[in-house]
Simulated scan of single mutants.
Amino acid sequence: MKLKIVAAAAVLALVLALAGAFLFAQRTAAPDVAFTTLGGQTFRTADLRGQVVLVNFWATSCSSCIKEMPALRRMQQTFQARGYQTVAVAMEYDPPARVAALMVRGDLPFTFVLDHNGHIARSFGDVRLTPTSFLLNRRGEIVHKIVGQPDFDKLHALIDELLTEPT
């Protein structure tokens, strides 16, 4: 009987260790890339640490991307004061003038960057489909990847949870 209890405890410990390793593996560091804004300023992924960040890959030719912009704007306005930021990465084939026009026309209050040579998209796992978003925690780890339009209620809950986590 004692042997069965010891064996069961060992199996349980192994399962918990594997589950912990799986959960830890889900949070990988975001790639270290340089972003260049429409205004020409540059910053790196490491500069975003301390904030919860949604890195959103999009294109002006993507109707789903354009459709989700008002919801992204509301999300930015809702969480910005608590340390949240949206970084909208225009795909390399997007003309900068079209990106700028959309940003102004849509009154979009987040950071727009241009992926001039596709390096940012490749660094985030060779993003080709838009919209694709990556949610980063305050430590700069990717905690969630979204291909297509997000379920904004679930995304809001996750952002709220990440913003309340200790740093």
Rank of each mutant, 00 (worst) to 15 (best):
M1H: 07
K2I: 07
L3Y: 11
K4G: 02
I5V: 13
V6Y: 00
A7I: 10
A7M: 07
A8T: 08
A8R: 00
A8E: 03
A9T: 05
L12S: 06
A13V: 10
A13I: 10
V15C: 12
L16M: 13
A19K: 05
F22N: 11
L23E: 14
L23V: 12
F24A: 15
A25S: 15
R27E: 15
R27M: 11
T28D: 12
A30L: 02
A30G: 04
D32G: 08
V33R: 01
V33M: 08
V33E: 11
L38M: 11
G39W: 07
G40K: 03
Q41A: 12
T42K: 08
R44W: 04
R44P: 10
A46C: 11
A46T: 07
A46M: 06
R49C: 07
R49G: 03
Q51M: 09
Q51T: 09
Q51H: 13
Q51P: 01
V52H: 03
V53D: 10
V53Y: 05
L54S: 02
V55H: 08
V55M: 09
N56L: 00
N56Q: 05
F57K: 09
F57T: 14
W58S: 02
A59S: 11
S61H: 09
S61W: 13
C62D: 06
C62F: 06
I66P: 02
I66Q: 11
K67V: 08
K67N: 09
E68Q: 12
L72Q: 06
L72H: 07
R73G: 04
R74E: 15
M75N: 01
M75L: 15
Q76M: 03
Q76G: 00
Q77P: 00
R82N: 04
T86F: 01
T86H: 00
T86D: 00
T86R: 01
V87F: 01
V87N: 02
Y93W: 14
D94H: 03
P95F: 11
P96C: 13
L102D: 04
L102G: 07
M103H: 14
V104F: 03
R105K: 15
D107N: 12
P109R: 13
F110T: 00
F112S: 02
V113G: 07
L114G: 02
D115G: 06
H116M: 10
H116W: 10
H116T: 14
G118C: 09
G118F: 07
G118W: 03
A121C: 08
R122P: 02
D126L: 04
V127E: 00
R128D: 12
L129W: 11
L129Q: 13
L129P: 00
T130H: 02
P131K: 13
P131R: 12
S133D: 09
F134E: 06
F134R: 04
F134Y: 15
L135K: 01
L136S: 01
L136T: 00
N137C: 08
R138N: 04
G140M: 05
I142S: 05
H144S: 05
H144K: 07
K145D: 12
K145I: 15
G148P: 01
Q149T: 15
Q149L: 15
D151L: 12
D151E: 13
K154R: 13
K154G: 09
H156G: 12
A157K: 08
L158Q: 12
T164C: 02
E165R: 14
E165G: 00
E165V: 02
P166G: 04
